[in-house]
Design a protein around this nucleic acid. Sequence first.
DNA 1: ATGAAAGCGCTAACAT
DNA 2: ATGTTAGCGCTTTCAT
Lengths: 341, 341
Amino acid sequence: MLTKAWAAEFGPRGVRVNAVSRVVNGAEGVREPLAERVRRAVEELGYVPNQAARSLVTRRHDAVAVVIAEPETRVFADPFFALQLRGISKELTAHDSQLVLLLTEGRDDHARVGRYLAGGHVDGALVFSLHLDDPLPGLIQRAGVPTVFGGRPGWNGSAGDVLYVDSDNRGGARQAVRHLVGLGRTRIGHISGALDQTSAADRLDGYRDVMAGANPRLIVESDFTPAGGEHGMRELLDRCPDLDAVFAANDLAASGALRVLRERGLRVPEDVAVVGFDDMLPVAEQTEPPLTTVRQDIEEMGRLMARLLLRGLDRPDTDEDAEAAPNSVVLPTTLIRRASA
Amino acid sequence: MLTKAWAAEFGPRGVRVNAVSRVVNGAEGVREPLAERVRRAVEELGYVPNQAARSLVTRRHDAVAVVIAEPETRVFADPFFALQLRGISKELTAHDSQLVLLLTEGRDDHARVGRYLAGGHVDGALVFSLHLDDPLPGLIQRAGVPTVFGGRPGWNGSAGDVLYVDSDNRGGARQAVRHLVGLGRTRIGHISGALDQTSAADRLDGYRDVMAGANPRLIVESDFTPAGGEHGMRELLDRCPDLDAVFAANDLAASGALRVLRERGLRVPEDVAVVGFDDMLPVAEQTEPPLTTVRQDIEEMGRLMARLLLRGLDRPDTDEDAEAAPNSVVLPTTLIRRASA
DNA sequence: ATGAAAGCGCTAACAT
DNA sequence: ATGTTAGCGCTTTCAT
């Protein structure tokens, strides 16, 4: 880690720093006798290259920023981000890249994040921007850092060229509602998420795809939380006491809905069938009854985000047009049948 | 960001790079006319210092590694780490330090983490090492990186000098059990966590402090999960059908216990009173009945870990003995009364 | 194929 | 107070 100090160490072993560099980076042009000496010296001395010095010359950082913009406590109420992080971490690790976590608490933090990203400390960014009016995507675009978004950014800027990974929220919602229809249910309500998030809007669209002519009073906007699910369910029940099914925008909201149904003495699924979204195991398997829901592979989404970003980085711009340019990915969902519908 | 390119830019404005360095780093010895010119030039050119170059000379990185070693999915089943991360992130941000997240999936990853830490890429590390036999603390010790642990490391190496932040698990457990005793309960069971974790062991000790002469069959080892809580509760009920209270090592296990009690037709708290630990809101407030539990301020723990580490870094070694040397911190807990006990 | 040497952009020690 | 300069440890070009 010290050119000076190391010269003294490597020298006597007949090894020069540049040879070390070549071997460590797997470059050509070092033949066996020398290469072997280098490897041994590296091993014995426990040599680890200094990343700062390397970055200074290569202009690579082998680091990626993960920006999570979620002032609400929601991030911490469900394991969604934890799972994405795990997927991201695995993929980055496989590519010897580090994960720099940037949590933002509100508007004030945006400038800080923008500065950091623009500062060229990382090779790219993975961004979770959940709200339509979030200024972050714009800031990042301006910072000129290669970026992949988690979830379709609901952001009508230069729309075409943003890269993102998302679940097929709309398709998943259709699966859920069609399942309820298949059960013979006809008065199917929907407790949506916060509609300034594309996932919520897309799931609502999916519901509408199937329930084309439905009474608009069967739809109530909520916020992805258990408490929100409770309120939504109460509202729905007040509006349409003869409701026979509910599709909740996520499992957390569904768990709230279940509680209200129980409280009102309605049986699930006999009186009212319930379907959630996410298949968040600790929630979906623990409710009473266990939740029929739409599974999305969250960890895989994380992995894909990282893969997309890294692929873009490896292939700087030297491609003739679209050839192998990475595209946004929308992952399929699966209906998981449990007892609630 | 380029000495060469910038010289050309700064030069005509009568500004030399070293003056920029001084102003940007808030050093002494630049008077107003110059300082003002520098600030304007920086502003207009959108100059951002190159962190790699800076690190190379200062040997500071303004970055801290957060190591989370938890192969189990448990990390993702409760918001524990998310909350700690938030606390850590806030504190680091306030000190202009970055958070490098290292997630380890198992033994294979330890070498990688050790190498990274030894590589001197970060100024320090915050480590969550939950299991007694975890080789990570040893590795880290050897890497020679300033470290603060999250939770008392159950690790009998050079014990005295490790720095950690923990909740008063033992005291909290005492509060819980005393509360049950105060309710007139006498046959109080304990569903412990995995006893290779100090938090679980400490809570068990707290239980024993109060229930000194209790029947050892009132204690069942479990694993901090809802499923574990279910098994534990069943076991306890089989062993001692006349049980009148349970202290579960965390809220998740308590929620499992509640389910079994309901299933067996036992009323809570009338027949069996239940107390949890953590006060994990999404769990504790959503159970039926809501959970009486011991609150620990998890976010604050994260914040304190970061503060302890940064304080140690600011004050390299230039202190006459223990004077202001930071010490481990054990945070108090609070009993939160809800309906279950 | 191997060795010597020139920087990468910055800070800090030294000159002025 | 301001300007000049020598490295920090590494990669990479250029001699050998």
